[in-house]
């Protein structure tokens, strides 16, 4: 409905970034230095200064995002510009280096910058794709509502199990206690169901992926039970089936939310590393002037 970061204000910053890149390319093309193009020519230095300033400005986004009293535009505008200028930086830095690479600190800085830009691109992709999927998966409910529904199913399961022999109560309780949604961001992202369950007469817990162990056990009990108990067990199975569906929905929600966050775990530390390498690059360049 609203304009995304890419479409912000009629792609205003795309055009600005394209223009800037075009100017740099034309300058590179027109430039005719005595030595092969590199960071040491007049144009090379100029592009280097421009690149360094752009890195500083792009990093400043982290500050602007948290400077809530700032009156300079909106964070959305800043992010839109951040994306497009980050991409044009790649080209400008290549021109600055005159496409020369080697096993040195300068190329390290370039590699780190590339990783930062690539991780940022992943972020853009995720930001463009995931929110809609997140919203569709939730189907109008909030995460806490989904968790409340889960709690409600557990409570009802306990109530139904209370009508059956003690083993059922134990199985339900153990199933509730050992259902896992993933604690770390990585676990959530991989969407692994590491739930376990303690079944009667078993020496250790067994995996209960998709609540299957619990449902199998219930099915077996149901086949042996009298009519009245069988109906109650069927009721319990139905609740478990709902739980399984709900858990899948919650796990997908957590997975998408983890995806929305995890790329920053690469983008931000890589930016810090880039800043260090860039500093070293600048210092060494001046040292060997």
């Amino acid at each position: 409905m609203q304009a995304s970061i890419l479409a912000f204000r009629g792609r205003r910053y795309l055009w600005v970034a394209l223009a800037l890149t075009a100017i740099c390319i034309i300058a590179y093309w027109l430039d005719d230095p005595q030595e092969p193009p590199n960071g040491g020519t007049l144009l090379g230095y100029s592009l280097g200064v421009l690149g360094a300033l752009m890195v500083a400005w792009l990093t400043w986004f982290g500050v602007r995002k948290r400077d809530y009293l700032s009156g300079s535009g909106t964070v959305q505008g800043w992010l839109s510009a951040h994306v497009y200028f980050g991409l044009s930086l790649m080209v400008i830095v290549l021109l600055h280096a005159g496409f020369q690479f080697g096993w040195n600190i300068h190329t390290l800085a370039f590699v780190l910058m590339t990783l930062v830009v690539v991780s940022g691109l992943c972020g853009v992709f995720i930001y463009m794709q995931f929110p809609e999927r997140l919203s569709e998966n939730r189907g109008g409910a909030s995460r806490s509502e989904l968790l409340d529904q889960l709690e409600d199913i557990d409570r009802r399961s306990r109530r139904v199990a209370a009508k059956l022999p003690e083993a059922f109560r134990d199985v339900v309780t153990s199933g509730v206690q050992r259902t896992e949604l993933g604690t770390t961001l990585w676990q959530r992202l991989r969407n692994q169901d590491r739930s376990q369950i303690q079944l009667p007469n078993a020496s250790a817990t067994v995996p209960n992926k998709g609540q299957e162990a619990a449902m199998d056990w219930l099915a077996e009990q149901q086949s042996r039970a009298d009519a009245e108990s069988a109906a109650t067990i069927a009721e319990l199975s139905a609740l478990l089936r709902n739980k399984r569906k709900l858990l899948r929905q919650i796990r997908e929600d957590l997975r998408l939310q983890a995806g929305l966050e995890i790329w920053l775990y690469a983008h931000v530390p890589l930016t810090a590393a880039l800043l260090m390498a860039l500093l070293a690059h600048i210092v060494t360049v001046f040292l060997y002037w």
């Binding site: 609203q2 304009a3 995304s4 970061i5 912000f8 995002k65 809530y68 009293l69 909106t74 964070v75 959305q76 800043w78 992010l79 930001y127 929110p131």
Partner: peptide, 9 residues
């Protein structure tokens, strides 16, 4: 501030 601080609009 809520609107201005939203990074995605």
């Amino acid at each position: 501030a809520c609107v201005r601080a939203c990074p995605t609009g």
